[in-house]
């Protein structure tokens, strides 16, 4: 569903992502871990079509993000690490805006807004302006807006940051539900316990290069993910 082929992205002289290749299949929750500045956010931004890259290609549902970005983005949802949303809109205005862009029917958007806003306890606040939202509320709104068009592939950058325990739990259940229904999720996190419990597969990135990947068992073996990560980082 999501194929990253030899992705390379440089900022001046520095290679942020260096020849990274990764395949994420249908039904998989794929974790992406690495230290700060390892190249996680750059990789995720390249997948979402936000960041142009130097070499390689990314395919979403068989479409290349280079040659057919619009088609790729139709089946993709992206949640950034910092939910900078339109402050001049109310929560509901933002959700309707996203639904309009993805051409979600009125019935479907109503159902999904109701479902996810209730799950994340945001329903009462949808009339408030986004400017008045806390970081956690913005994160919830970003998640709801990402789910509003029923995406097949979801790319998330640190999705649990700022969420309260209940919302974080709900998000984990939703992530599993989406993958069980044939979707695929690729997300970065620093919370190794979450990655260990939630992910089917895991990849570790260091200085832009993929240094280990595979199923959770293949990567961690008999030890914990934390031990593996710390050993690889040392």
């Amino acid at each position: 569903m999501l194929k990253i082929e030899h992705l390379t992205k440089s900022y001046g002289e520095k290679k942020a992502v260096d020849d990274l290749s990764l395949h994420i299949n249908q039904g998989e929750i794929y974790g992406f871990i690495g230290h700060n500045g390892a190249g996680k956010t750059t990789t995720l931004k390249c997948i979402a079509g936000i960041q142009p890259f130097d070499q390689g290609d990314i395919f979403i549902n068989g479409h290349s993000i280079k040659t057919d970005p619009t088609e790729c983005k139709r089946s993709l949802a992206y949640i950034p690490d910092n939910p900078d949303l339109y402050d001049f809109m109310t929560g509901i205005q933002f959700l309707n805006f996203v639904a309009d862009i993805f051409q979600v029917s009125v019935t479907d958007r109503k159902d999904r807004i109701k479902k996810y806003a209730d799950v994340f306890s945001l329903t009462d606040d949808l009339n408030q302006s986004v400017a008045s939202y806390s970081h956690g509320m913005k994160q919830k709104l970003a998640i709801i807006s990402a789910l509003i068009h029923n995406p097949v592939v979801i790319v998330m950058d640190e999705p649990f940051v700022g969420l309260d325990p209940k919302a974080a739990h709900s998000l984990k259940l939703i992530m599993r539900e989406i993958c069980d229904n044939g979707g695929a999720i690729f997300f970065s996190t620093h919370v190794l316990e979450v990655a260990e419990k939630l992910c089917d597969k895991i990849s570790i990135i260091k200085q832009g290069k993929l240094i280990k990947y595979g199923t959770m068992e293949e990567v961690k073996g008999d030890t914990s993910l934390e031990d593996v990560f710390l050993e690889l980082e040392s």
């Binding site: 339109y86 001049f88 809109m89 929560g91 509901i92 205005q93 309707n96 805006f97 639904a99 309009d100 862009i101 051409q103 979600v104 029917s105 009125v106 958007r109 109503k110 109701k114 329903t123 009462d124 606040d125 949808l126 009339n127 408030q128 302006s129 008045s132």
Partner: peptide
């Protein structure tokens, strides 16, 4: 604080806009 008066959300009638209309509305709102 700049806190605004809380106005509880009640489901409203919405209509689907074309992509171009949605983008223009967003620009006007800004």
């Amino acid at each position: 604080s700049h806190s605004e008066k809380k106005n509880k959300y009640k489901e409203q009638t919405t209509k689907q806009n074309s992509i171009q209309n949605a983008l223009v509305k967003k620009e006007l709102l800004k």
